[in-house]
Design a binder for these strands. Structure first.
Length: 612
DNA sequence: CCCCCCCC
């Protein structure tokens, strides 16, 4: 009977010093296990036991294939064909790292009676497993990955894989995927694109003075941060250009200090004196991938979150300087205003050299990766040192924005993020300790927890029904300045005077201050909604409603229509005093259609917490 | 071996 499995594969991996080149074995999964060491980004890692029918061997699966495990495509007794993999020697044990695979149709039966290749090897070949395996050059063989790399290398094939013996210099090991790198290997080469390069940073501490820089490398399997100190700065800083592809070898792999970077890898590279870096003109290495958030969506992100944003630079601020409170050091700073086709704008701050050298005054499209969301002025963005920006990138989103801006965006009024009362942008700073804007609270909870009773402002969302809308005072006469002033104006008999704009208008524009009583099953409270939110609730502008009222129409029906609406109110609770008595002012910052799914989840959690 | 990511 012929087995569909690649007999002898385990032995080949274990015994051969030569890479099993162009071997794409078919193996059977004996078990799948989640291991207790999630990846840098918190992703799960899965270990497989793979059988060739005679022996079995341990394997790890690259995180980008996790979905196949979670969907049970990869499961016990499934046959898989490894089309991309590397092997590692880790503390004398062999491990296959699977980078690419295909499943092979099979009836689900277990094939043969495989035994552990490790035990067999330990009995039969002591020397290869016990004698200081890390000091000895670990056996590293690269399977399908290398074959695939070479076949797609094009001109970059100048640097062939291990089999071709390097680049006329010392042997530097086989071409490795970034995902396959680990501290247990010292003989590897990666072919990767620099997606980010830092400035040169100088430091001085107890150990002395020094300088350093870091880059992020990316290939089709992942990304890794690399750092170089002192001499390495001199050797490599100018060579490594953002966006270009390089071969890197003979560097150290350390455990990543993950708290200092958002690069998704458990390890990082340290450039050393013997490190070799060579440019490569292979353009098949992937480019940076973005996951853009619309500028209007920033209200949904948490403060300090990193995100990707693309926008048109509508305004470039002056170069300024600020002194850090923490270090007393001055930093160059420049604010730019970004807009996108959502009609929203946001401020983004550049720091240091980037602030100094920024010179795009032609309203370019810029794609930002990994910028930090701040809550100043509602929402703001800040360039992080690991953030990157790409001016007029050749990606569809950029072309789209360019077309939109040139056709209409140029003349659009943009909705800004602000902390002011009239902003419809949701969020706003849930300051340290403050309730997050997205956090659901019943009215009872908001009161019981004393939201808005302390110094800080609290933000929460409540799903509630409008019980009553005050009709007597629903609006105020506001400055008619089309630039958007919104200040209250007074009629002095000759016109409506705005003190802020120092202008007089024939007629004001009425804006809402809508006072409403809303309730849920736990209670009710009075809330105030300003113009934008109130318009959404009333389905008519305050100005129009005032006109109807002035001409003697019955406007009661509008208020009746609003009454009974159930909405998700994004609320701000702030301490206030009234007749010297402290009280809480509840202001509605945004209204949405009720989100029944999260509201139900919240109620279920409440019920469960009742512990009955 | 750095690791600060700032200010209004």
């Amino acid at each position: 009977m012929s087995s569909p499995l690649t007999a002898g594969f385990c032995e080949l991996v274990f015994n051969s010093a030569d890479a099993p080149e162009n071997v794409t074995p078919t193996l059977q999964v004996l078990s799948v296990k989640k291991i207790n060491a999630p990846g840098a980004s918190g992703q799960d890692r899965y270990r497989l036991i793979l059988s060739d029918g005679k022996h079995f061997i341990q394997a790890m699966i690259a995180t980008q294939l996790n979905g196949m495990v979670e969907s049970k495509e990869i499961d016990k007794n499934v046959l898989i064909k490894l089309t991309g993999y590397v092997t590692n020697a880790v503390q004398g044990r062999k491990l296959v790292i699977i980078l690419q695979l295909e499943t092979v149709p099979w009836n689900g039966d277990k094939i043969g009676n495989p035994t552990n290749i490790e035990q067999q090897q330990q009995q039969g070949n002591q020397s290869s497993t016990s004698a200081a395996p890390q000091q000895a050059v670990p056996k590293q063989e690269v399977g399908g990955f290398q074959a695939r790399q070479q076949s797609t290398a094009g001109r970059g094939g100048a640097r062939a894989g291990a089999g071709a013996g390097g680049r006329g210099k010392a042997e530097v090991g086989p071409l490795y995927p970034i995902e396959g790198l680990s501290p247990y290997q010292n003989k590897w080469t990666i072919k990767a694109r620099v997606t980010q390069k830092s400035d040169i940073k100088h430091y001085s501490n107890q150990r002395g003075e020094g300088k350093l820089f870091s880059v992020t490398f990316m290939d089709e399997t992942g990304e890794i941060r690399a750092t170089g100190f002192n001499e390495a700065v001199d050797n490599f800083y100018n060579l490594l250009e953002e966006g270009k592809v390089f071969f890197v070898s003979r560097a150290r792999i350390n455990i990543a200090k993950k708290q200092f970077s958002n690069v998704n890898n458990e390890y990082e590279i340290m450039f050393e004196n013997q490190t070799e870096i060579e440019p490569c003109d292979d353009d098949t290495v992937p480019q940076v991938k973005y996951s853009f958030k619309g500028i209007d969506q920033l209200g949904e992100t948490q403060k300090d979150e990193l995100c990707d944003v693309i926008g048109v630079v509508r305004e470039v601020g002056e170069l300024g300087s600020v002194t850090s409170k923490a270090t007393n050091k001055p930093f160059a700073k420049r604010d730019i205003q970004l807009v996108d086709s959502s009609g929203h704008s946001v401020r983004l701050t550049l720091w240091g050299k980037q602030a100094e050298t920024f010179s795009a005054d032609d309203q370019p499209v810029i794609a930002f990766k990994g910028v930090k969301v701040g809550d100043f002025g509602g929402r703001s963005l800040s360039m992080f040192s690991s953030a990157t920006m790409s001016v007029n990138p050749d990606i569809p989103e950029a072309h789209q924005l360019r077309g939109w801006f040139d056709a209409e965006g140029r003349n659009t009024q943009f909705q800004q993020y602000t902390n002011s009362m009239n902003n419809a942008s949701g969020a706003g700073g849930a300051g340290a300790g403050g309730v997050k804007p997205s956090e659901l609270k019943t009215i009872g909870e908001a009161k019981d927890e004393g939201l808005g009773m302390s110094e800080k402002t609290d933000y929460f969302t409540t799903s509630a029904t409008i019980a009553f809308v005050k009709q007597e005072t629903f609006s105020y006469p506001a400055c008619a300045n089309p630039e958007g002033c919104n200040k209250k104006v007074v009629d002095d008999g000759t016109g409506w005077m705005c003190e802020k704009c120092d202008r007089k208008w024939d007629a004001p524009i009425h804006r809402y201050i809508l006072s409403m009583n809303v309730m849920d099953h736990t209670g009710s409270f009075w809330i105030t909604a300003f113009n934008e939110q109130a318009e959404q609730i009333m389905d008519v502008s305050a100005n129009e409603l005032m006109r109807l009222k002035d001409e003697g129409s019955d406007i009661n029906s509008y208020f009746q229509k609003a009454t009974g609406k159930t909405l998700a109110f994004q609320m701000m609770a702030k301490q206030d005093s009234f007749n010297d008595q402290p009280r809480v002012r509840y202001q509605c910052r945004k209204v949405n259609a009720p989100d029944y799914v999260s509201a139900s989840a919240h109620l279920i959690a409440l019920i469960n917490s009742m512990n009955v």
